[in-house]
Each structure stands twice: as structure tokens, then as C-alpha cells.
Amino acid sequence: MLSIDEKQNDIIEDFSIFDDWVGKYEYLIDFGKSLPMIDEKYKLDENLIKGCQSKVWLNTEMKEDIVIYSADSDAVITKGLVGLMVHVLSNQTPEAIVNSDLYFIDKIGLKDHLSPNRSNGLLSMIKQMKMYALGYTVKN
């Protein structure tokens, strides 16, 4: 399994071929569309990320010391963004997730999506993902 940073570097490389916003957003949109939907049974209010204009559901499971995330959104760009986060952080140990530095968002030119007033709630999503991971480290 690739490490968090290896996955981030792969994404940065994927995005490096785009020289304008259209390519980047088309990638995000296609990525969002290609992601499997979260299982309907996980689309619970308690799994909704607060602070999003679009709905974002995040489900977390622990399997053999690694954290498995799955997420979904009713907005496709948001789904692409959360899909990237899930791709980077899922299948990692709780410690690696808690200590991760998510530099790839800045590097691929989507840092604006991390501003606190941003309606897609990506920042809340990252906090929530790390909170879950932190919870698992405490449980262990």
C-alpha cells in the first residue's frame, strides 16, 4: 500500500499536465462521477459533515489497524474533492492519518477550496477524518 505522501505525489503528478482550470475541474468532475456511491445505509444524518452547502456523508471503519473511509456528496465537484481526500487517507493507520500534512491541495492549485468560508466544507471534512483517526488511536 502506498503511503499518504506517495499518493499525494501521484495526484500532484496527475494534475501537472493541466495548464488551465478547465482541465483540473474536468478531472475532478470525472473523478467525482467515477467514484462508487456510498452505501445507502451509511447516508445517515450522523454521517453528514456540517458546514457544507452540498451534502457530504463520511463513513469510517477500522479493519485490522487501518482506517477505511468512504464518502459521498450530492454535488459532483465536492464529490471529486472528497474522493481525493478519501483516496489519500483511506487504508492508512490512524497515526499516519493524524500526523499527515495534506500539501497536495495547495500544490494542485485548489487551495481556495480550503478557505473556512468555502461552501464545500472540505476543511470540515479533513477535520472530521482526522478526528475519527484520532479516536481510533485513543481506543488502541
Partner: peptide, 18 residues
């Protein structure tokens, strides 16, 4: 989704609210 539409409009320099 309105937020997707708003995001793509913003990329084109167009400020709307969603």
C-alpha cells in the same frame, strides 16, 4: 447542484450566490 454551478462560474470570474 447549485454549488457545482457556482464553482464553475467563479472560475470564469462570475460571482453569484448559491
Amino acid at each position: 447542484h447549485p454549488s457545482d454551478l457556482g464553482t464553475i462560474l467563479d472560475q470564469q470570474g462570475i460571482a453569484v450566490r448559491t
